[in-house]
Design a protein around this nucleic acid. Structure first.
Lengths: 140, 140
DNA sequence: AAATCCTTCACCCGAAAGGGTGATTATTTA
DNA sequence: TAAATAATCACCCTTTCGGGTGAAGGATTT
């Protein structure tokens, strides 16, 4: 930030110098006004681009990756709501028994859901299922 | 992109108009050159800022989150190189047997490594280990 | 009403994962 | 040199996972 302020100061100093120099040139030599105006235009266009870059850089870096559920893929794979719930809890590192307790159903039910999930996701292990589900943006 | 080109064209047209207008003003009225140069400077600074914004916007949005290994945390937890390797393969959804085959060691060795990993990461399952390792930026 | 889908649960079995203990070898450190 | 650390492997045992099959009840669709 300090550097930015210093550079702005230098740019203003350059502006004063440029104006005085052009004024001198206009008297000594005989060139059209457009020529000098063109130079000023070029100089300040460059200055503006630089300023524009400075202004945006930091703002855009703040942008974090936000999760948007890919419902299209969810439907394409035919994953039901309950299966999706199980998938989410699975991704949170819960065991089948813990998932069963969380959803108030039996362990066998969760086993059925997870087996169906593996078939639909075309994987063999829960770690792979989590990986693939994250890749397809089915879970955060 | 088309809009940008059109706007650039409009800006150039405005430049020509501005120059001619200033030329006329310089003859009819009696103002200093600095005044007109100042106007041009302002105009092109604004134009430059706008151009700068246009140029950066799309390029910077492409920036994805890049992985920087948290070696401090790695040392704090006392995770060795080999254990870290196993952790990475684990996160890729490989089974212990597959990890053993990849690293050309026995299944028992991988079991030892993974057990030590779970102790150091204070977790009970590999899914939790992967979760925690990602959170601590030990793996991508 | 019949077909389909979702959810639930059960049983069996084998494979994988995880916990504990102990041991060897090489490298590094004190 | 002795101690500590890292990597390797083995054996035993329990828990968890995953595959296969079957089935019952409810909701939706045809």
């Amino acid at each position: 930030m300090k550097r930015t302020i210093i550079l702005y100061g230098l740019a203003l100093a350059a502006l004063v110098f440029l104006l005085k120099y052009l004024e001198y040139q206009l008297i000594v030599r005989n060139r059209s006004i457009e020529f000098y105006v063109g130079i000023v235009a070029l100089f300040f266009t460059a200055l503006g681009i630089w300023a524009g870059l400075k202004l945006t850089k930091k703002k855009i870096i703040i942008l974090g990756p936000e999760f948007i559920l890919n419902e299209t893929e969810l439907q394409r794979l035919g994953i039901s709501k309950r299966e999706h719930e199980v998938l989410e809890l699975m991704a949170q590192g819960l065991s089948n028994q813990e998932i069963a307790d969380t959803l108030f159903v039996s362990l066998n039910t969760i086993k059925t859901h997870s087996s169906n999930l593996f078939l639909k996701l075309e994987v063999r292990r829960r770690t792979q299922a989590i990986q693939k589900a994250k890749k397809l943006r089915l879970i955060p």
